[in-house]
Design a protein around this nucleic acid. Structure first.
Length: 687
DNA sequence: CAGACGACATTTTTT
DNA sequence: ATGTCGTCTG
């Protein structure tokens, strides 16, 4: 047989839409409603899709990716920006099942991760160090603390703001593109008298980052913007590769991100934003829901499509959530409807006598639901604050109910993990002052002062690993030599990562036991788990940037180790539950002061955001919704809790009220129905 | 100068 | 419940 040649198209060669078989439109028409279909097939130009909760926003994005791919667009020329990496992965995997595996190769991820990727590739053009380090929030705070001390603010001024407040100010200025002065003036008036000092600190922090090749989260976005603005040729190169740009959760983008979207789509002009102004809940990160309203101004020819038919929740749940969101001071024209899920169970408001009862109620109800055939993974418990579920977690463990928790403290934020990672970072960049700072302070007898001297020495030393030759008291020579020699040796042999980590663990273990002697067993277990994660990586660079950009969830990891065959129940902060849905949703601690947070009460804007947050929580539910709060709250002193003010205003025919009765005591309600929430139908739950 | 101890305030939410 | 600040001792 004669040999034939087969020409493979270059992966990134732009392929004319007409060249491949056109997508089967009938398939799309059948599986999407009219508005969704239009959003999927409108591929050219600017498009804004305003999609209410549960209206098939994810489905639309997924099918649109599939549609583009089927039309012959190369996956690499599509960019899908999402709020979490999880969201991007899920969408692309789903698209892959709708169309084919090419979908998984679409560019995607968070703004920060994508910015990071581009900066690694092109950062040299704007003079970024090749091995720059990404600071997560805790690292950024550490850096601020160092600067704060160096400037003497810890001594000089009484009540000089602490590192987290300072970072919040600096970050708000970056995200909102406003001068520090404006941020302090409007959000931190109590610091206005020391504005000059705060400004000095912000400048010093900027210089410190620059001197040490550090980028915090805000810098990732700001530097990418700088690159795209100041390097015209690069903007051309990058943007011409991106034929289609899609942005999910656009209501939670900030100004810098909106600028980036415009820059990245500036060559082809095909940009689609999807979002819901009623679900904007990230203003503390500089997001502004008005961005979504400004989209048509930024892209004057933008087409706008609204998705209003809800496919998720029952009619009764929708009736309640529609009323909830209409309490917003800044009104949204929003009225979701359903034609499929008429009727349904009434949402329930559960006044538990106290937090223990609340936990018992939730746990028992979950067990019953499981008996009735609802799989655990279709149930979620949501809360305002990560710590609101501590009591419930104990109850769930007691009853052997497996769960995963999202939100709350991240493992990477734990001090002992940070210590360990600091050593890894030194290996990556031997002049990383921040990490040396951390590693040195762990040595016995070495405190802030000596550390400062050592770090100053490291900056100019020909070989930072010869740290024992630094000019400090000889009494530290031994421990310094041990650290320096170990790191020096390891730096010659970075692979495999697992054995590198093992050697470091041998070194760090005794330190951990000494420094955290009260609770070292638990911390050791964390680290062992962490070593397992490290072993999955084959590059130090990837590991370190992943740690900053996709923090691993502590409890998610914990349960993974002990997972049973059953897919677990979800516990999640409302913020982390964004975009997801469950058949049954419990909202716990729906107290005034919790949601709305007591810190939000007072300003209309932040109060509205809390309302939207409640709206997001309630709209996660498909069939059953329980809103719980304890009547007696245990604090330093016990007090009577009030249900969220947003619930108190609801018409009583929209929900039913559950009273909890303890089977062990006499069969009568333990709590009188509060006057504000008259019972629609009382129901007794024997325990 | 480091580190321990005690007092005090301070608490969202996440990339 | 946790982190931060001030003070005292070795």
């Amino acid at each position: 047989m004669p040999t034939k040649t087969f020409v493979l198209n270059a992966d990134d060669a732009p392929q004319p839409m007409a060249s491949s078989a056109p997508p089967n439109l009938e398939k799309y028409r059948k599986e999407l409603n009219a508005a969704q279909f239009e959003a999927v097939t409108t591929t050219e130009g600017a498009l804004l899709v305003v999609a209410g909760a549960g209206t098939g926003k994810t489905k639309t994005l997924t099918y649109r990716v599939g549609y583009l791919i089927e039309s012959g667009v190369a996956p690499q020329s599509i960019l899908l920006l999402t709020f979490t990496r999880r969201a991007a992965e899920e969408m692309l995997n789903r698209a892959a099942t709708v169309v084919d595996a090419r979908c998984a190769r679409v560019e995607g991820g968070t703004f920060h991760a994508y910015a990071h990727k581009l900066l690694r590739q092109y950062g040299a053009a704007i003079n970024l160090a090749e091995n720059f380090i990404v600071l997560d929030q805790a690292d950024a705070e550490d850096a601020i603390e160092i600067v704060r001390t160096a400037l003497g603010f810890h001594k000089k001024e009484k009540r000089f703001p602490k590192k987290n407040a300072l970072l919040r100010i600096v970050s708000a200025a970056a995200n909102k593109q406003l001068p520090i002065e404006r941020i302090v003036e409007t959000s931190y008036p109590q610091f206005f008298p020391i504005l000059d000092d705060i400004q000095r600190l912000a400048d010093a922090y900027r210089d410190y980052k620059r001197a040490n090749s550090l980028l915090d989260y805000d810098d990732l976005l700001a530097e990418l913007k700088r690159l795209l603005t100041e390097r015209e040729a690069l903007r051309q190169t990058i943007a011409s590769q991106l034929r289609y740009v899609m942005v999910d959760e656009y209501q939670d983008t900030n100004l810098v991100q909106a600028d980036l979207v415009a820059l990245l789509s500036s060559v082809h002009g095909n940009v689609m934003a999807v979002g819901d102004d009623a679900q904007s809940i990230y203003s503390f990160r500089g997001a502004n829901f008005r961005n979504i309203l400004d989209f048509p101004k930024r892209f004057p020819n933008a087409k706008i499509i609204k998705l209003e038919e809800n496919y998720r929740s029952t009619e009764r749940i929708l009736a309640l959530t529609n009323v909830v969101i209409n309490q917003a001071k800044e009104k949204f024209a929003k009225n979701l409807y359903t034609t499929l899920k008429l009727g349904g169970e009434f949402p329930a408001i559960v006044a538990a006598p106290d937090e223990r009862y609340q936990s018992r109620f939730v746990a028992q109800r979950i067990l019953e639901l499981r008996e009735e055939g609802v799989p655990l993974h279709r149930i979620a418990v949501l809360m305002r604050n990560g710590r609101d579920s501590y009591d419930l977690e104990i109850e769930l463990k007691k009853r052997n109910l497996p769960f995963v928790k999202y939100g709350g403290q991240k493992i990477i934020e734990a001090a002992h993990i940070k210590d360990f990672v600091a050593h890894l970072r030194i290996l990556y960049n031997p002049r990383d002052a921040l990490s040396w700072n951390r590693a040195l302070r762990l040595l016995e007898g070495i405190g802030p002062k000596t550390t400062q001297e050592l770090v100053a020495w490291i900056k100019t030393a020909p070989n930072p690993y010869r740290i024992e030759t630094a000019n400090v008291s000889p009494r530290y020579a031994d421990s310094l030599r041990r650290l320096g020699t170990l790191l020096g040796e390891l730096s010659q042999k970075l692979f495999p990562l697992s054995s590198l980590a093992e050697s470091l663990w041998d070194y760090y273990k005794p330190i951990l036991r000494r420094v955290y002697y009260e609770d070292f067993p638990k911390r050791e277990k964390d680290l062992e788990n962490f070593l397992g994660i490290v072993a999955n990586y084959d590059s130090l660079a990837t590991l370190l940037s992943d740690l900053a950009l996709e923090p691993i969830d502590l409890s998610a990891m914990e349960t993974k180790a002990t997972v049973k065959d059953e897919a677990p129940l979800t516990l999640s902060t409302i913020h982390s539950a964004k975009g997801l849905e469950w058949q049954v949703v419990f909202l716990i601690n729906a107290l005034d002061g919790v949601i709305p947070s007591r810190y939000a009460v007072g300003e209309t804007e932040s109060l509205d955001e809390e309302l939207r947050l409640l709206y997001v929580a309630l709209t996660r539910a498909r069939d059953l919704l329980y809103i719980c709060y304890p009547v007696i709250c245990n604090g330093a002193e016990d007090y009577f809790g009030n249900p969220s003010r947003f619930l108190q205003a609801l018409p009583e025919d929209l929900y039913e009220k559950l009273l909890l009765v303890d089977a062990r005591s006499v069969q009568k309600p333990l709590n009188a129905p509060p006057a504000a929430l008259p019972a629609r139908r009382d129901e007794e739950l024997p325990f």
